[in-house]
Design a protein around this nucleic acid. Sequence first.
DNA 1: CCGGTCCGTCCTGTATCCAGAATCCAACAG
DNA 2: CTGTTGGATTCTGGATACAGGACGGACCGG
Lengths: 238, 238
Amino acid sequence: MKVTSGGAPLAAATGPTLIARPSRLAEVAADQLRTLIFDGTLPPGSLLRQEDLAARLGISRTPLRESLRLLDLEGLIETAPSGASRVVDLNGAAAVEAMEVREVIDGLVARLWARRGLPAARNRALAAIVDQMDRASSLGDKKEYMAGNASFHLELLRGLEHRWLDQFTSLVRVSSQATYLRLESGTDRLRLSAAEHRAILGAIDAGRPEEAEHLAREHVANAARHWVLGRGEQGGTA
Amino acid sequence: MKVTSGGAPLAAATGPTLIARPSRLAEVAADQLRTLIFDGTLPPGSLLRQEDLAARLGISRTPLRESLRLLDLEGLIETAPSGASRVVDLNGAAAVEAMEVREVIDGLVARLWARRGLPAARNRALAAIVDQMDRASSLGDKKEYMAGNASFHLELLRGLEHRWLDQFTSLVRVSSQATYLRLESGTDRLRLSAAEHRAILGAIDAGRPEEAEHLAREHVANAARHWVLGRGEQGGTA
DNA sequence: CCGGTCCGTCCTGTATCCAGAATCCAACAG
DNA sequence: CTGTTGGATTCTGGATACAGGACGGACCGG
């Protein structure tokens, strides 16, 4: 159980950064690879050759291989029986499965926060993110909206400091990103989504675990309908 | 390079065993280590020295290190910033967190099976397991019951062949095992638990996703109450 | 007698090297 | 022209060797 920090653009506010870390090179490499995957430098389906990547990151193959195993278990890459690794391509069944897991995980996160109680500072930060998403949705700025969306969910997930939940950081990142990148519809879904975020935050802040979980699950289910199934109507039961 | 071929006591039973796999030594080592942890050879808190383990498994440190990273991400071991790894000790807060995740995961598994439809052969196999648990509960054979309990949940989990769910195998194993090992009460809880399993299986077989998920979550929550919190009464809200 | 510091040993982390296997290309036969 | 088969290249997997830091114990000072 280590950090799995990820190159968070603006979410990396909580790091204690005590004194000095022995810097496990495999961890650093994993972070680098995640960044390369998320920013599109390593597109889905890309073949990952250990020697190239090692040279690219300026390390040897040994720690790189460990990082590949990590990303494999995280579900970010997949390794063929022959040993060839490639960036996972979330489409069709794989996307559905990813969102199935995200639904219950996000629901759990919301429930735990509602039960634990949301600190005022974090509430303000999340509210600010939702405001940002609102603005972005009004302007139809999908990229900006996507960034806020990812920040919102990651802030909740990472903030819990839950040892069994940290590993879902990559899942949340990749699915959040892919969801709205593929979203072709207008600003309608964006507005609705922003409202859903605000509702989730409200339920958490009000300390209503059941409601928070329900709203979070519905939110993910709605996103899945629009992303994976393509332009579904909202309101159905999961 | 003999991989202590005689090993693998019981872990390599479920594999499809298509033709022949190149046998990634790190995977084999991970399985071996899981077995050693689950059967108590490596008790919680044990310090894991790479050189010793490598010699013990008859491999070098390179693949062993990869397996340690895997087990780390799975939550079965934890690695200090200095690099020292030790078997995770599920007690107190860690146990609560583990069961929180298990609750939603097992709920998702039940829901997916109910939606997908349970093949008759698998239904029979699961029913047989529940029967075995019934007998064990009547006799108060906790060990036998525990085995059936783990089999039940693992059969459901692994049978889905869900790419994002496989990684919870260790979580289910360790929590299932620990739950009933610590259970000191009489056969009452065992009987109730067996009934819960039967109800879950019934809901799945009847194709009722919502009910199956609800029952599965309640089941885990009940187990958690008796295990972690010690002798709680059922019926409370999660 | 107790505390602090220095030193030795062990362990982890990383790099390099070797062997086996898969893949790809090309030449050849039908 | 196409399918097949042969070989050479290349890649991954595993083992070994080396460097840096951590931990523990003994020695010295108070």
